[in-house]
């Protein structure tokens, strides 16, 4: 089974040289720490920055320089600032190659829910609805089951949707899965996790084709 860092490390392997990448809040943010050495990618922060660098050293925080999670950050050589309209312009016109975000639920047709639990939690969708509606490629980092042990990979999302038919790939603590017209397709198992465990944790349609390899995480 993977921890949060493990999920981030596995997702980092999906990033290709030359990509513009938008990272959501939570596990996706951690992905930035595991981008392979020598790879040239640019991180987009939808509040108005291309070329997001690491957190600043203590004492060097700048209140005019934050990421979409409102954390203090730094810039890198070649960074550019822009306004919110242009930021979503580049997202809508599919200039961003990869979007990595968290989810509360995903359906086997690629629907995603991650912004609201009616009666309990209403934080808002932020930029997530824009990102999922337009992204070329969306990878979701999420827990396979909730705290009560119930599957979050469903036939149909129960929570209010963020987007419809948009998720391409999911990385959970148990597995890597693709979304196909036939449902979730199991690609890899997390270290020490059996196909049976993944089956039991997946409520939506699950395709298991041949031997499923174990993930390789450095």
């Amino acid at each position: 089974m993977l921890d949060k860092v493990g999920i981030a490390k596995r997702i980092a392997k999906e990033i290709k040289n030359g990509y513009y990448v938008n990272l959501g809040i939570g596990i996706p943010t951690l992905v930035a720490n595991y981008i392979p050495e020598g790879m040239s990618i640019v991180l987009q922060s939808e509040n108005g920055l291309l070329g997001m660098g690491p957190f600043p050293f203590e004492g060097e925080e700048n209140p005019d320089l934050i990421n979409a999670g409102k954390q203090t950050i730094t810039i890198v050589p070649g960074s550019a600032f822009f306004d919110s309209a242009m930021s979503f312009g580049m997202i809508r016109s599919r200039k961003v190659d990869l979007t990595i975000l968290g989810a509360m639920e995903v359906s086997d047709t690629g629907d995603i829910a991650n912004w609201k639990i009616p009666g309990k939690m209403v934080k808002g969708m932020g930029g997530a609805m824009d990102l999922v509606a337009s992204a070329k490629n969306i990878i979701v980092a999420m827990q396979h089951v909730n705290k009560a042990g119930e599957s979050k990979l469903l036939t149909r999302c129960e929570l209010p949707l963020t987007g419809v038919g948009c998720v391409k790939k999911i990385v959970t603590e148990l597995a890597v899965l693709d979304i196909t017209p036939q449902g979730f397709r199991l690609l890899e198992r997390a270290p020490g996790v059996s196909v049976e465990e993944i089956k039991n944790a997946t409520e939506g349609r699950l395709i298991i084709d041949g031997d499923i390899p174990e993930m390789v995480i450095d």
Binding site: E46, F88, I91, M129, D130, A133, S134
Partner: peptide, 25 residues
Amino acid sequence: PQGTLATRCLAAGYGMPVIYTPAGV
């Protein structure tokens, strides 16, 4: 959606009454 918010402001400043966006479909 955040992009809808930004673009509805932009439309006002550009003198356009509506926008079409895929966000929220």
